[in-house]
Each structure stands twice: as structure tokens, then as C-alpha cells.
């Protein structure tokens, strides 16, 4: 059991368009991971669709690199579209 790989579970809710990450579990293979995800994460009608994928397949950014990667965006608020003035005759958008 200890050798069972870790799987990340993504569930799409009734209203939601996208699958959202909701947790992880250990399972022997993908089919079993799907079964277990059904029993663990959709007991209260949370979902209409489940994805599982091996945690090992995820390449994650290093928390140590947080400042390098994300700090530079902090003082560039002009990248938000709210800074553009929308002409009146465009109407609602």
C-alpha cells in the first residue's frame, strides 16, 4: 500500500465549467484512483465529472523562486484592462 502512487483529483461541479483541484489520494492505478475519488470527493453531490492524474506528472514551480517569478508583476498595475477608458458608444462590455 505504501508503494501506491499519489494521484491528484479534479472535480467539475454541476455549475462549473472547469475541473477544480480538490485533493489527492493514493491508489494502485488510474481506474482505482477514479473509484476512490468518487467515494471520497463526490459523496455530497459535489461533482458531475472527475479527472485523476498522477501527481508525479505535475511539474511545479519552486516556492523558493516565488520572488523572482511573481514579484516583478506587482508594480505593473497598468497591465489590468481597467486602465483603458471605454468610449460611451461602445456600450456594455
Amino acid at each position: 500500500m505504501k508503494e501506491w502512487p499519489l494521484w491528484e483529483v479534479f472535480v467539475r461541479s454541476k455549475q462549473g465549467l472547469e475541473h477544480k483541484h480538490c485533493g489527492s489520494l493514493h491508489a494502485a492505478d488510474a481506474q482505482q484512483a477514479l473509484h476512490m475519488a468518487r467515494d471520497v470527493y463526490t459523496r455530497r453531490q459535489e461533482g458531475v465529472s472527475i479527472w485523476v492524474l498522477p501527481s508525479a506528472a505535475i511539474t511545479a514551480s519552486d516556492p523558493e523562486d516565488k520572488d523572482t517569478l511573481f514579484e516583478p508583476a506587482r508594480d505593473k498595475v497598468y497591465r489590468h484592462p481597467t486602465f483603458f477608458v471605454i468610449p460611451d458608444d461602445v456600450g456594455h462590455m
Partner: peptide
């Protein structure tokens, strides 16, 4: 295992 505990309770 926890997952089977829940599966049987379900």
C-alpha cells in the same frame, strides 16, 4: 484504508 472506509460507509 481511508478511501475504503468511506466506500463501505457509502
Amino acid at each position: 484504508i481511508l478511501e475504503e472506509d468511506l466506500a463501505l460507509a457509502n
